[in-house]
Design a protein around this nucleic acid. Structure first.
Lengths: 192, 192
DNA sequence: CGGGCCTTTGACTGGTTTCAACTTCTGTGG
DNA sequence: CCACAGAAGTTGAAACCAGTCAAAGGCCCG
């Protein structure tokens, strides 16, 4: 339990054993069954979730259509940060694509850790910085590359997601219809 | 000098006068003429830049076409964070749309401030968190809203940018051709 | 084994891009 | 200070590409 969480943590900010024990007290384990919600639109997001194993998706619903904005597999962190920090209702849903084990940091725990553990603030800063950089690159390729390139990049960057997630969800993540993605795949297959 | 910088800083993390003086030592003022580069693709990004006044844009070039990924007016912060943190060559250009006054935080200053000024780390964390949230919302509206909605949202959220920046750059920011944006504007004007 | 979801395929539609021409505006040099 | 060249914005026509709607086949799960 918490193995992967601390592995990732230590990669960014090395911790002593005591620090690790200290932090452990603030963490909450949680299991989610496939299709179960971690967060529903309209609720306030009360946690930052780290995926020990399994898979989640985060998505917005607009005009009855789902638009996936993020996947989270093992080692990833997921939350509706806007709702988490402001206390406003969430604009996204988060649910499980597989049976999943999570490590949760509640808002209270987050605030306590910020006060008492300087390395926690550093970890958070680095975590969000990386997330920001990744998001900016995604946005850039969204507006500057042709769809085929974007799909190729995606499969190269996240082969595990391609394996485990249904194609229509990948289409949604890319802002395409399932039909269009299907045709793109066909085209790429014939290209060889 | 530095007025707006510290105003924004204090909004997020209140500083004592001493702290402010302390931080001031690490800051570098810089002026940029219209069209002048702050950063060119391929160079390593050595600063985080805060805009005291004026306007910048950050953009990628792909197949000879410019794709603007961000504007920065007074009070905004801009950088190629990937390049800044990793030391890898920048993938973006940053240049001035108007004569501009900047406050620069160099990499050295950044690292010193992180070591010596706990409130600087907090400030950075909050800055990047906000940037991340804003970027996520932009991405969401990119993939879930029709173009007209997106343009309306943009004009409502950033009327100052619409005023000061040429339309073809706004088109680029939205991932459209100038012609398409022109037609959308015409359509919206007729709607009333 | 059956039902429902997922993926694929086809035909059609609609919106965006592209290319080109024309107008307006701006800034620069004579 | 005017003139002119270049940039920016608008408009039109044609080509292209993604979306929509509908249907069929495959596969997984109960």
């Amino acid at each position: 339990m918490y193995n992967l969480f601390f592995q990732k943590y230590n990669e960014k900010v090395p911790l002593s054993d005591e620090e690790q024990e200290q932090i452990k007290k603030y963490l909450t384990p949680k299991k989610l069954r496939k299709k179960q919600y971690l967060l529903q639109e309209g609720d306030v997001c009360k946690v930052i979730a780290f995926v020990e194993n399994g898979a989640l998706r985060e998505y917005a619903v607009e005009n009855g259509k789902e638009h996936i904005i993020q996947f989270a597999l093992e080692g990833w962190t997921i939350s509706d940060l806007f709702s988490f920090f402001t206390g406003e209702p969430a604009t996204y849903h988060i649910d499980a694509l597989e049976d999943t084990e999570l490590v949760l940091i509640t808002k209270d725990a987050h605030e306590e850790l910020l006060k008492t553990q300087p390395k926690y603030e550093t970890y958070m800063r680095l975590l969000i910085t990386n997330a920001y950089i990744a998001l900016q690159r995604r946005l850039t390729s969204n507006i500057s590359l042709p769809i085929e390139e974007r799909y190729i990049n995606f499969t190269e960057k996240y082969p595990d997601i391609v394996q485990r997630v249904p194609q229509h969800m990948i289409a949604s993540y890319m802002g395409l219809t399932p039909e269009t993605l299907s045709r793109i795949r066909k085209k790429l297959a014939n290209r060889k």
